[in-house]
Amino acid sequence: MENAPIVTKNQAYRETFQRGTVVFPVQYSLCDTTNPHYDLPLHWHSEFELIHVIAGNYNIFIEDKTIKLEKNDLCLVPADLVHGDAQDKGMALYESIVFEIDLLRLHSYSPDIFFTDILNESIILDNYIPEKHTEILDAASKIFEAVKHKDEETGLIAVGWMLIFFGLLKKKRLYSEKNLNLSRAKETRTDQISNVLNFIRKNYNKDLNLQDMAEAVALSPKYFCRLFKENTGHTPIEYLNWFRINRACTLLRETNEKLLEIAMECGFNDFSYFTKTFRRYKGITPSKYRTFDPAKAKEIIIDPDYLWEKNHPEESEESSGD
């Protein structure tokens, strides 16, 4: 896991739509990060989320850290935590379920004590659950398999496996007690990083430079750059470009504006630099992104073998005998 900027809830949008059905509030998703239309922006919701990497490698940002997930790793995101793609999200096929924790409450029986501690944040669940925890991975696999069917009978099975999943988390002690004594230095650093992220979101379309971002948090450019790099793994300019490109993706999908207009609107004064940067982050040019049809590419995009070849080209070449 790598440190990353701490993002507050007011800097990410809240998802509030209905998950699944009223009687079974669980949403299943299959996601392919190599799909140019794929994007998981920073957000938060009142439900829990469980992620399972089927193939490839996926990097997820959760509130103050980046977690690197490999094939068969799990990631648990408790309620109300800001999360989304890391800046370098990797190439992966993963599945996720978003669910109401009330599905598992048993009206004051023993498990409720554990869930109450989770909801009260007196204990903090581990986000990263590596493949080596085979019992937990098996329980998670049963959950995903049951949820896919979306009927009453398998819904009961899914809830049963969810209880087993959380029971195993407790048994393996994959949680920690909350440290209530956050140092003043860390609080200050958190505020500075949060403030500059908010500054970028409000001013990304302007001609920003390192000096502008440093002044936004009253730091010298040299110290600010080091602080930002230490806490995010990326330079301020890298993060700025990443944010601008994601904004450009939205405009390409939702408007008919010309490419040059979109580049200018997103803070790129040099069109060739915009195209080069876009390709760096999305793997294709802006024009191809706009005309990309995910339905036509679905069969190859969700193929785990295809993802493996993209992630390990040198091994694929060796195995082909060329």
Rank of each mutant, 00 (worst) to 15 (best):
residue 224 F to T: 06
residue 55 A to T: 00
residue 17 F to V: 11
residue 299 E to W: 03
residue 255 T to I: 04
residue 245 I to R: 02
residue 17 F to A: 14
residue 293 D to A: 11
residue 14 R to D: 10
residue 207 D to W: 01
residue 294 P to T: 07
residue 294 P to H: 03
residue 43 H to G: 01
residue 74 L to G: 11
residue 291 T to K: 03
residue 150 K to D: 14
residue 90 G to H: 02
residue 160 G to F: 04
residue 20 G to A: 07
residue 306 Y to T: 09
residue 233 G to Y: 01
residue 60 I to K: 00
residue 281 Y to E: 13
residue 224 F to M: 13
residue 75 C to H: 02
residue 270 D to K: 04
residue 68 K to F: 01
residue 1 M to T: 13
residue 38 Y to R: 04
residue 142 K to D: 12
residue 115 F to K: 03
residue 243 F to P: 00
residue 136 I to A: 07
residue 176 S to M: 14
residue 318 E to P: 02
residue 29 S to M: 02
residue 267 G to S: 12
residue 247 R to E: 09
residue 304 P to W: 01
residue 94 Y to A: 02
residue 120 N to P: 00
residue 181 N to H: 10
residue 214 A to E: 10
residue 29 S to P: 03
residue 174 L to A: 13
residue 87 Q to D: 02
residue 293 D to W: 03
residue 122 S to G: 04
residue 147 V to F: 09
residue 78 P to V: 13
residue 270 D to N: 15
residue 121 E to T: 01
residue 280 R to P: 00
residue 161 W to E: 14
residue 293 D to K: 03
residue 143 I to C: 00
residue 261 E to W: 05
residue 311 N to V: 06
residue 261 E to S: 08
residue 247 R to F: 00
residue 322 D to L: 08
residue 125 L to I: 10
residue 43 H to Q: 10
residue 71 K to N: 12
residue 141 S to D: 11
residue 167 G to D: 05
residue 221 P to L: 11
residue 170 K to C: 14
residue 19 R to L: 15
residue 106 L to Q: 06
residue 108 S to K: 12
residue 220 S to M: 13
residue 2 E to T: 02
residue 2 E to R: 15
residue 32 D to G: 04
residue 228 F to R: 09
residue 161 W to T: 12
residue 198 N to D: 09
residue 205 N to E: 08
residue 318 E to R: 15
residue 26 V to E: 15
residue 171 K to D: 13
residue 155 G to Y: 09
residue 18 Q to H: 14
residue 18 Q to C: 12
residue 145 E to Y: 12
residue 293 D to V: 09
residue 193 I to H: 05
